[in-house]
Nucleic acid binder design. Structure first.
Length: 428
RNA sequence: GGGGUAGUAGUUCAGUUGGUUAGAACGCCGGCCUGUCAAGCCGGAGGUCGCGGGUUCGAGUCCCGUCUAUCCCGCCA
C-alpha cells in the first residue's frame, strides 16, 4: 500500500472543511456505536477525530486500538465536544496491526511502573507524557547547539573507544579490541583540550561511560555529556558560558515547549541570573555551622551537598575547590596554590557540571601527574600537544540527563533517557 | 557493594488470625446501539499468586533460600 499524507494532524484547520485529506497515524481510541464508529487518530503532531458511517463502517473489519492506519476522508463540522472539526472517513487502511494485549497502556489510563515502561520503551513513546519528555530533550539539544554556535564553539566528535585508561577517577569499561585491551571513554577531556590548539573553542555532545556500580536516580553507566573547551578563557569565562547556556535552555523551552509542559504537568521556570557563586571554603564554614565534622581538604559527601543545597536552592556555582580534590589537569590559583581554578554547577544538592581552568604548561602538568601517582609515560600522546603551542584554556562537562531532570522537575534520569544503561539494565 | 520496600490477570492494584472455586478497575474478545468523546448496556476469556524448598489436615498469606524490580546510602560525575 502506497499512500501520501497530505497533512500532519496539527496542520488541519477548520478552513479545510469540505476538503479531502489523507492522514496517517495510530488509533488511540475506538468507539463503535453500531452503525457508526468514532476513531481518535493520533500522529506525532496531534490528535483528531475520525467518523466512520455507512458501508465503510459495516466493512470496517479488523481494526483496533494502537494499530497504524491511513485515513482518507473529508474534513467536516463536528458535534464533538473535544474537537473543532472531524474527518469523515472514505477509506481506511490498516498499515500495521497492534496485537493485543499490549504490555503497557499508551493512553496512560493505567500508569505502568518505570521498569515495565522501559522494557517496552518504543510503545511507551506513544504515551504523550513520555513523548513530550523526549520532544523537550530535542529542543534542549537544539538550544544548546544554537547558543554554542553563536559563541563560536565548533562541534567535534571524539573517540569513544580509547587505548588507555589513565585519566583517573571513575572506573572504565574495558573491551577486547583486535587482541588489545581497549576502554570506553569516560569523557572527552584530553581530546577536547588538544583541539583548542587549532580550533580554539570546541564542544561535544556525546555519550560516555562509567563503570561504577551505582544504584541511584542520577547515575547511569552510559550518559550524555555536554562538554566545552575554550582557548584564552579563564574558569570565570567558561562559567559565564555555562550560565548563559542554562539560561538559554530554560528560556527557549519555557517559550517554545508550552504544549510539552502542559502534558508533562510541569511549568518550566526560568531561573534568576546571575547564579550565586559559593566558594568551597564558604561551604566548609556552612557545614561546620550546621554541626558537621569537616575540614578543609575533605570532599563533600552527598549528605553535605544536601545541606549546602538547602542553603542555596536552585542553580549556584561551587567554586575554588582544594587542588588535592581535583584531577591533574586543573590549574591552581596564583594567589593561593592550595586552591584550584575550578567549579561545579549545582542545582541544589545535584551536581550538574564540573569544570575549571586547565594547566597548559607541560612541565607543571607532568609534575601534577606524578603527584597524583599517574605515569606521564601513559600520557605521551596527550602531552605532545602541549609542546606545540598550547594556549591557556578552560572548559567543563555537564550531564545532559541531569539537566533534563531539573528542567521537568523529576528525580530519576531514567525518565529522560530512551534506553538507560545501569548496572542492572543492559537491555532493551 | 550495604540497607529498606515490593513481586497476585495484559496493566495498576486488593486479598482479613492460614480455611470453599483468588477478586476489582482499566484493557481484551463477542452481542446490542447513528453523535461518541474516560461512551453505555449485556455476556465472555484471561492466573504455575516470581522461582525452589519447608511448616501445616490445609499456604497468595507463616519460615528458609533464591531471582527480579524499585527507593535510599556508598562509589562516582
Amino acid at each position: 500500500m502506497v499512500f501520501v499524507k497530505t497533512h500532519d494532524i496539527s496542520e488541519l484547520t477548520s478552513e479545510l472543511i469540505g476538503k479531502e485529506v489523507v492522514l496517517g497515524g495510530w488509533i488511540e481510541d475506538l468507539r463503535k456505536l453500531g452503525k457508526m464508529s468514532f476513531i481518535t487518530l493520533r500522529d506525532v503532531s496531534g490528535i483528531s477525530q475520525v467518523i466512520v458511517k455507512g458501508e465503510l463502517n459495516d466493512n470496517l473489519g479488523e481494526i483496533n486500538r494502537q494499530s497504524v492506519v491511513s485515513v482518507k476522508g473529508i474534513v467536516q463540522e463536528t458535534k464533538a465536544r473535544d474537537f473543532a472539526f472531524e474527518i469523515k472517513a472514505e477509506e481506511i487502511d490498516v498499515l500495521g496491526k497492534a496485537i493485543h494485549p499490549l504490555p503497557v497502556d499508551p493512553i496512560g489510563r493505567v500508569e505502568s511502573n518505570i521498569d515495565t515502561r522501559l522494557n517496552h520503551r518504543a510503545l511507551d513513546m506513544r504515551n504523550q507524557k513520555t513523548a513530550s519528555i523526549f520532544k523537550l530533550r530535542h529542543h534542549v539539544l537544539q538550544s544548546l547547539r544554537k547558543t554554542l554556535a553563536e559563541k563560536k564553539f565548533i562541534e567535534i566528535t571524539t573517540p569513544k573507544i580509547i587505548g588507555s585508561a589513565s585519566e583517573g577517577g571513575a572506573n572504565l569499561f574495558s573491551l577486547e579490541y583486535f587482541g588489545k585491551k581497549a576502554y570506553l571513554a569516560q569523557s572527552p577531556q584530553l581530546y577536547k583540550e588538544q583541539m583548542t590548539i587549532g580550533l580554539e573553542r570546541v564542544f561535544e555532545i556525546s555519550n560516555f561511560y562509567r563503570a561504577e556500580n551505582s544504584h541511584t536516580g542520577r547515575h547511569l553507566s552510559e550518559f550524555t555529556s555536554i562538554d566545552i573547551e575554550a582557548a584564552f578563557m579563564d574558569y570565570n569565562d567558561v562559567m559565564d558560558v555555562l550560565e548563559s547556556l542554562v539560561m538559554d535552555v530554560y528560556k527557549f523551552t519555557a517559550e517554545n515547549c508550552k504544549k510539552e509542559q502542559e502534558v508533562i504537568g510541569h511549568t518550566i521556570e526560568v531561573p534568576k541570573s546571575p547564579f550565586e557563586k559559593v566558594t568551597y571554603n564558604q561551604c566548609i564554614d556552612e557545614l561546620k555551622s550546621a554541626g558537621e565534622k569537616i575540614e578543609f581538604g575533605d570532599d563533600l559527601l552527598d549528605s553535605h551537598l544536601r545541606i549546602i543545597g538547602d542553603n542555596h536552592p536552585g542553580f549556584f556555582f561551587l567554586t575554588d575547590w582544594p587542588m588535592k580534590l581535583k584531577p591533574f589537569y586543573i590549574r591552581e590559583k596564583d594567589e593561593d596554590p592550595e586552591l584550584s581554578r575550578s567549579f561545579d554547577l549545582q542545582y541544589g544538592y545535584l551536581e550538574l557540571s564540573s569544570g575549571g581552568t586547565r594547566l597548559h604548561n607541560p612541565e607543571m602538568l607532568k609534575a601534577r601527574l606524578k603527584e597524583q601517582d599517574l605515569d606521564p609515560a601513559q600520557f605521551t600522546d596527550h602531552l605532545k600537544a602541549f609542546d606545540w603551542g598550547m594556549p591557556p584554556h578552560s572548559g567543563w562537562g555537564m550531564g545532559l540527563d541531569r539537566l533534563m531532570t531539573t528542567l521537568i522537575g523529576i528525580d530519576n534520569v531514567r525518565e529522560v533517557v530512551l534506553y538507560p544503561r545501569d548496572p542492572d539494565r543492559l537491555s532493551p
